[in-house]
Design a protein around this nucleic acid. Structure first.
Lengths: 246, 246
DNA sequence: CCGCTTTATTGACCCAGCTCAATCCGGCCT
DNA sequence: AGGCCGGATTGAGCTGGGTCAATAAAGCGG
């Protein structure tokens, strides 16, 4: 079964889901080989985004969701008046844009934190394909459901946790996401600025900086610029959800 | 076209989507008459929940989502250690349980705030039906997407807004939800305790109480126990998202 | 390699909202 | 009716983390 167009694209170095190292984490996760190529066919590759470039802007018409292939992004919502709110960081294999389905506009801008490549998945096609492929549909429901769950965890963090717990949670969560992707959970590079971390966690930059310094002086982590080494993971995990003395 | 079983149920006072006053807000929103009866067929009615009763408990196996028919509920997540976090209030026509799809467990308990009736929609059937009815599928995607968007608004509230702004936002949002459901946006009854409001908004009960008193003394609202009258809606809306005096 | 700009760290001070504690109120049961 | 109990209000202080300000260090373009 020759799929010449697709093959030519592949030879011309357009990557395909079948050969993507993320396929075990990404949307096609549950698909059979023969279904993956159907899925692959609706995907549009994109030129890599440079650091600071937007994948899309808040208010733009919703048309596609995107799977992160490499790099990382942040989602920022501006809501009229004052400050922006950074609502999410996206790592490879994660799905961007699901919150735009409802009112057909992206509710926030998504911006690359470093050189980043994404796969564009036109939602119309994704929806149509999800009619034929129950596994794909299930995976899509699951992705959205997981994001809902993560959001609720974030609400808990924002409304109940101290600044120290927030930072500890942020680091353990990132660490875990790296581990799942096959990277070291102990040593990694932050692709976001301190200001982004603060904005995301509901803290002032200065607080983020102070707490990282403190964690460092307590030998829990070693931080140098954006390089992070977790020295005492159990302690960090303890800090993340226990505490609250009294 | 006689659907005798269903009709008999209807006569025996089991309600049906076709006659439900919420149908224009609820899941079947986009369906044709003939499709609604298919949808109606998979729904299980439930005995009303009394105040304080749980629809389901955190950790229970996920099997169904629920549409609120009357009354209201709160979702509470316990996360191991200390405090609970109240992550959502649900009003009639809203869908409960969508965050349980992913890992097949409900990630929080959902408890009735007053006498409440719900329609149970077994997810297996809903998924299967969503294969045949693109409109239903779309509506489901939209519901989840909307919940994601609302969550992000909540994150913004929790991480950037002052206590006064939070209360004002809470009241305007509730007001709007009542309006959409055909109730007065100016005068309504809170079904939740102050403690619930505080927990939801990330504030101490005392703060909620103090701010309600202050809003009252400023003639923005009149509060008496759980009865709320919004006296100055424009002012309340202003309080909700502007402010931040520098 | 050198300024220049952006980002990060550290210190000093202050205040919004928390905690603790004392009522107060309303519903409900006997 | 009266008493009781849980929820709500109000007051008094305390403090975590914000703000403002001053460096320091890291990119980065030339």
């Amino acid at each position: 079964m020759p799929i010449s167009a697709s093959q030519r694209r592949s030879l011309a170095q357009a990557p395909r889901c079948q050969t993507c190292s993320l396929s075990s984490l990404c949307l096609p996760l549950a698909l059979q080989i023969e279904d993956i190529s159907q899925f692959d066919a609706i995907i549009r590759r994109r030129a890599p985004l440079k650091k600071g470039e937007a994948l899309f802007h808040q208010g733009e018409r919703f048309s596609s969701v995107f799977a992160v292939r490499s790099g990382s992004l942040k989602q920022v919502t501006s809501e009229g008046n004052g400050e922006d709110q950074l609502t999410n960081f996206y790592l490879p294999s994660e799905l961007v844009g699901l919150d735009g389905i409802d009112d057909e506009c992206y509710p926030g801008s998504v911006v690359a934190l470093e050189t980043t490549t994404v796969c564009e998945i036109p939602f119309k096609h994704l929806d149509a394909l999800s009619e034929q492929l129950p596994e794909l549909r299930g995976q899509l429901y699951r992705s959205m459901s997981k994001e809902l769950r993560d959001d609720r965890r974030m609400m808990r963090l924002l409304s109940r946790k101290t600044a120290d717990q927030r930072l500890a949670t942020f680091l353990t969560t990132l660490s875990d996401r790296f581990r799942r992707r096959g990277y070291s959970p102990y040593s990694f590079r932050l692709s976001m600025a301190r200001a982004d971390i603060g904005n995301y966690l509901g803290l002032a930059v200065e607080t983020v900086s102070r707490i990282l310094s403190r964690l460092q002086s307590q030998q829990v982590v070693a931080v140098s610029g954006r390089e992070v080494n977790i020295l005492d993971m159990p302690r960090l995990i303890t800090l993340a959800d226990e505490e609250t003395p009294t």
